[in-house]
Nucleic acid binder design. Structure first.
Lengths: 162, 162
DNA sequence: AGACATGAAACTTTCATTGTTGCGTGATCG
DNA sequence: CGATCACGCAACAATGAAAGTTTCATGTCT
């Protein structure tokens, strides 16, 4: 449904890079999120610049975390991918002479900016480690079940790696 | 910047329909928001269904308010245009087996849903009449100035009507 | 009857993300 | 050294939703 999946995808990858593999190639990561390696490199380039990830070329190369997950907030990741627009709705960007339009847009922008501020504050208070904990709780719950097939599905990304 | 301008545009039009004209054709309204009459009808059809607007065909026809502005909240208008997605970012819609992805998306969706809830609550507490007051304050401030040219610009939409 | 105005369907345009291909560069292995 | 692996980057195509456009039908007033 949403147009920009980068934040969700990046968080997904970061947790795998901490919990399940030490280093992964763009190809392997592309497999995790069902896309291709170029999209992965493009998405992760911003995190390299912000020193959240390290990439190495050549044999045995790939992507690796530069810091522990508890030192990476959702806001860090959001900013690293370029702070894309949060909202789909809003007012036009072109200036206008109409005072009605100005008044409407000013009030609307105010409400949106406040919503954005609050959401980004939440993002800054959630670390990727928190999400990893969420995952592990779900995983533990599945292991408690007799449903081993579902438990195995949690490692889907790594069964096909070889 | 944003992709969906319908809410902003509709609010703009509603205020003009209350303050500056009693009834306007799709052509005149298209002139107000710099678009064409078909876009206007498409956008306003939802407000007719919700009985915020009335449209009449034929000679002297056009669009007219069905209720006073203080009985129309921003949320009413938002819902009348079809409750389009508020956010540009989010998680994928397709179900997955990966527990990491599930955990990430669940937490992300939670934060987004809370942000949406708060924003819609704000929208429900702001009436279009409030925005009209904002406009009138701006207009009064301009009239206090000696800058009559700017004051006239507030009526740009209606100088060209004839 | 003629002009005006909405209603609705079908099509094109626009724009950002996503997806894809190709080539260059650096690093490791044999 | 040469081959292979893997990232870096540039350029282009595909996708999807809103916006824009064209066309015709329907209803209404003079």
């Amino acid at each position: 449904m949403p147009r920009d999946l980068r934040l969700s995808r990046m968080l997904h990858v970061l947790i795998h890079l901490d919990r399940h593999v030490e280093r992964a190639t763009s190809d392997q990561i592309a497999g995790m999120i069902s896309t291709n390696p170029v999209v992965v490199r493009r998405m992760m380039a911003g995190l390299r610049k912000k020193e959240i990830l390290i990439s190495e070329k050549g044999h045995g190369g790939g992507w690796q975390l530069a810091r522990p997950l508890n030192a990476i907030s959702l806001r860090d990741v959001y900013q690293a991918i370029g702070s894309p627009p949060l909202f789909n709705i809003g007012s036009g960007a072109d200036p206008t002479d109409c005072l009605v339009e100005k008044a409407v847009d000013a009030r609307l922008d105010l409400a949106m900016q406040e919503a954005e501020r609050k959401l980004l504050k939440q993002f800054s208070e959630i670390s990727v480690e928190d999400l990893a904990h969420d995952f592990e709780q779900r995983f533990a719950a599945l292991q408690g079940d007799a449903d081993e097939a579902s438990a195995n599905a949690a490692f889907k990304h790594f069964r096909t790696d070889g």
